[in-house]
Nucleic acid binder design. Structure first.
Length: 618
DNA sequence: GTTTAGGATTCG
């Protein structure tokens, strides 16, 4: 059949040249019925395809043909196809984007767009992939709204785009080597804002599009990939740089789209770009970085270098203090002679550190009793869960006002019973990604699979009067891959029915869940010993950090390859392998001394505080 | 009124 249909865009691929004769765009829409429809659009005319800029946009398709492909209903362009697209933001002006010269738009249509906006505002998650450069993380895919400042051919398969959005990346952008004179753009402007520009390499099918872009135009680049790389330079041992890649293909909507000047996001971007305080920015941050700017070596640096900037370069430090900047530096030899407790600002190099393996440095810390314990291994966890699974789910504890229950009996596993209790929100079951489930008798493998589907999982067992949290050797709450643990000494477990006291039963904030269940949550921390050397003496200081020092959450590092890579690169930057200590970077640290008594002997020990990796200078 | 693509991340 041929239909006219309204919907909210849930997914889309911006128009791209197909292998046939036409441009192609794939769009998935959804509406109040929660039914999704994936549509394929073809046209020899780029403008004739729906002008979708982001998920959440509202569309109206006319003369859409409905067909079946692989047992799924799909929409496809039929002759006379036409579309209208509207911004999805509540309250935004209702202005149709279309290439149609004439179309009907009644008061009823107006109401339809508004109704879809209202529905989308609570049912479609706001586009989390739209990220400013200051918020990009290493190893991330995101959509970038930016202005094109320069472009250059690199080779047949890749092309360089230099863009900015007025904010500064947490790590300096890599600089792609290009031949002199191939960079198209206002070179002096690019030089002026170089600390705010990033280099993006686009590959394969995107090269043709990139070539045709006009410098100065506003772009949205979809599914741009970041990667953190350690780079060797002549005057610094190593530093970290963020690479930006637009890989070949169109998976996940990878592509580039030019945004019209009338677009509201472009409007906002322009305001940000105009308010960028160039002279101040350049003076404070430009100099150190320009040392390793290779693609600009052909551009003469104008103006003189102030003393302040020179000093800043000489002081180049891989860590900085987050407080106590007023303190004078103390040489290590002086600290070693003094009695604890004291506080010092020091400047030293990291001669070595322990443990060498990352997973050995992550521990669980109780902020109440200050005890430290190991993160349970997967194998141990499986055993703990299996022990918890020996009791048979008690049918009296199923289907309460708090949850709906279901029981499964496994085959060929001794008739093991698994009970899953789905926690309701005001008597109604939420969508699975908002839903907390309680599971009795599940294996680690089953729990992991369920935690991918559901917001949160709590392993439980049947008690006398209520379900109970398992022994605190097991995580009391599992969210995605993150396991939340509680302190055995400090917690006094309360019944599961206490979850009823949480008003919003869809957000499941770990600290709130812990509180109502009487659990004192443990914190994931890095625990490491740094051997610091400033040439006057050597001192061992320990570091305990949840995410302030490395700016990497210890709770996630063991389950995230990208974070592990970042962590390894930071440590390699502090302590570059195969390099003499002279070439190591300086670390500026704040340390506290304290006394430890063991038997009759008293010893001074040291801990690093209020210090963080200097992202802007490494 | 053919074909293209038919959502589902990477060579770099």
């Amino acid at each position: 059949m041929i239909v006219n249909v309204y919907g909210v865009v849930k997914f889309f691929k911006p128009p791209y040249l197909s292998k046939g004769t036409d441009y192609c765009s794939v769009v998935t829409i959804v509406d109040q019925t929660h039914v999704k429809l994936t549509c394929l659009f073809f046209s020899g005319n780029y403008e004739a395809l729906p002008m979708i800029y982001k998920n959440g946009d509202i569309v109206r398709f006319h003369r859409l043909k409905i067909q079946v492909y692989k047992k799924e209903t799909q929409g496809i362009t039929s002759s006379g196809f036409a579309s209208l697209t509207f911004e999805g933001t509540l309250g935004a002006p209702i202005i149709p984007r279309t290439s149609s010269k004439c179309f009907n738009f009644t008061a009823e249509d107006h109401k339809m767009v508004e109704a879809l906006r209202v529905w989308a505002s609570t049912h479609i998650s706001p586009s989390s992939t739209l990220v400013k450069l200051c918020d990009v993380q290493p190893m991330q895919y995101f959509d970038l709204t930016c202005q094109l400042l320069g472009k250059a051919e690199v080779d047949g398969a890749s092309f360089l785009l230099k863009v900015w959005d007025g904010t500064r990346t947490p790590f300096p952008s890599w600089r792609v080597l290009i031949q002199d004179l191939v960079l198209e753009g206002d070179l002096s402007h690019i030089h002026r804002v170089q600390n705010l520009t990033i280099d993006i390499l686009v590959y394969d099918n995107h090269v043709q599009v990139a070539k045709s872009l006009k410098v100065g135009s506003f772009l949205r680049i979809y599914s741009l990939h970041t990667k953190l790389q350690s780079v060797n330079s002549e005057n610094l041992a190593t530093f970290l740089a963020l690479e930006f890649h637009l890989h070949g293909g169109t998976s996940y909507g990878r592509g580039i789209r030019v945004l019209p000047e009338s677009n509201s996001d472009v409007d906002q971007l322009k305001k940000v770009l105009e308010s960028v305080d160039l002279p101040a920015n350049q003076c404070l941050e430009g100099i150190c970085q320009s040392e390793h700017e290779d693609s600009f070596s052909n551009i003469s640096s104008s103006g003189s270098v102030s003393l302040y900037e020179v000093e800043r370069c000489q002081q180049l430090s891989a860590t900085i203090l987050t407080d106590h900047q007023y303190l004078e530096k103390t040489p290590l030899c002086a600290i070693l002679k003094q009695k604890a407790p004291q506080q010092y600002r020091i400047r030293a190099k990291l001669r070595s550190y322990k443990p060498r393996r990352l997973f050995q440095s992550v521990k669980l810390y109780c902020p109440k009793c200050h005890s430290l314990q190991e993160v349970p291994h997967e194998g141990d966890l499986d055993i703990i869960l299996q022990e918890g699974a020996t009791r048979t789910p008690d049918s009296k504890l199923q289907n309460t006002s708090l949850y709906d229950s279901n029981i499964w009996t496994t085959k060929d596993q001794g008739e093991r019973k698994v009970a899953v209790h789905f926690v309701k929100n005001n008597g109604i079951l939420p969508l699975s990604n908002d839903c907390l489930i309680l599971i009795e008798g599940g294996t680690l493998n089953e729990i992991c699979k369920l935690s991918n589907k559901f917001h949160s999982v709590i392993p439980v067992r049947s008690g006398h009067e209520d379900l109970e949290v398992l022994d605190l050797s097991a995580p009391f709450l599992i969210q995605g891959k993150i396991h939340h643990y509680g302190c055995k000494q400090c917690s006094s477990l309360r019944p599961i029915q206490n979850l009823n006291s949480l008003v919003d039963k869809t957000s499941w904030i770990p600290s709130s869940v812990a509180e109502v269940l009487g659990i004192v949550p443990l914190q994931h921390v890095f625990v490491m010993t740094f051997t610091l050397d400033d040439g006057t003496g050597v001192l061992e200081a320990y570091l305990m950090d949840s995410e302030k020092f490395f700016q990497i959450p210890a709770s996630e590092v063991l389950i995230n390859d990208g974070l592990q890579q970042s962590m390894d690169m930071i440590m390699d930057m502090f302590c570059p392998p195969g390099v003499k200590i002279d070439a190591y970077p300086w670390l500026e640290c704040f340390i506290k001394s304290y006394n430890v008594t063991s038997g009759a002997e008293q010893q001074s020990c040291y801990q690093i505080f209020d210090t963080t990796v200097a992202e802007d200078l490494i």
